[in-house]
Design a protein around this nucleic acid. Sequence first.
DNA 1: ATGGCTACTCCTAGTAGA
Length: 256
Amino acid sequence: MKIATWNVNSIRTRLPRLTAWLERRRPDVVCLQEIKVTDDLFPHAELQALGYRALVAGQQTYNGVAILTRGEAREVARRLPDDDDDAQRRLLVAEVGGLTLVNVYGPNGQEVGSEKYAYKLDWYRRLHALLEAGASPAKPVVLCGDLNIAPEDRDVWDPEKWRGQIMFSDPERQVFRDLVAWGLRDSLRLHREEGGLFTWWDYRAGAFHRGWGLRIDHILLSPAVAARCTAVEIDRDERKGAKPSDHAPVVATLAD
DNA sequence: ATGGCTACTCCTAGTAGA
């Protein structure tokens, strides 16, 4: 079973690349972030043609998450407990293939100390509360998505330049450690120890070419799932070529 | 030294992303 996460930065703009990648990769489950489309305009037909059904928590212009599956999926939650109906669409929880799958698009935070930064930290506090109340690390849990947090120095192209900056500030890194402490493993680090494994590169300044990236997209697994995880890959080729997302997909393979 | 792109919108400038 292959589980993937990809911030596509607009599913409508990215549809040709998404469908080509799905045909080539054939993942069983795909968590998408930043689909930037309302539920009624989600491209169900194009994805159904490739054998995927979709759960969608969409929003106009900003945010929006979806889960694509080849098999059955049951929606469990589409917002944090204390979010109201028009809250930012950043969460989708489903039961898929015996797993509790938590698809996360973490707030960016804009700038350390800003209102959006406070929202980011509070959003993660509430996500942690959701996990505490509604899930157990003793069960098969997959939490994945664009967390907008680079957890360690080796996850940043220039840690000294980034230290204290958005996505790499100490409170944000603590958020990531809190998720791990709750009972999740950073799946990529089960297999790879080296630095330079990035999932996002700024569109500007030729950042991809220069290797100026961050690892902010993650697949976290509870121990029972981690034990089945045989490989984790970053499809960095998806950052190349015409009209790429600024994020690359991450794909975890689980043994049956 | 700075910013360098992309995608969105009751669109052609402003906001946001990260």
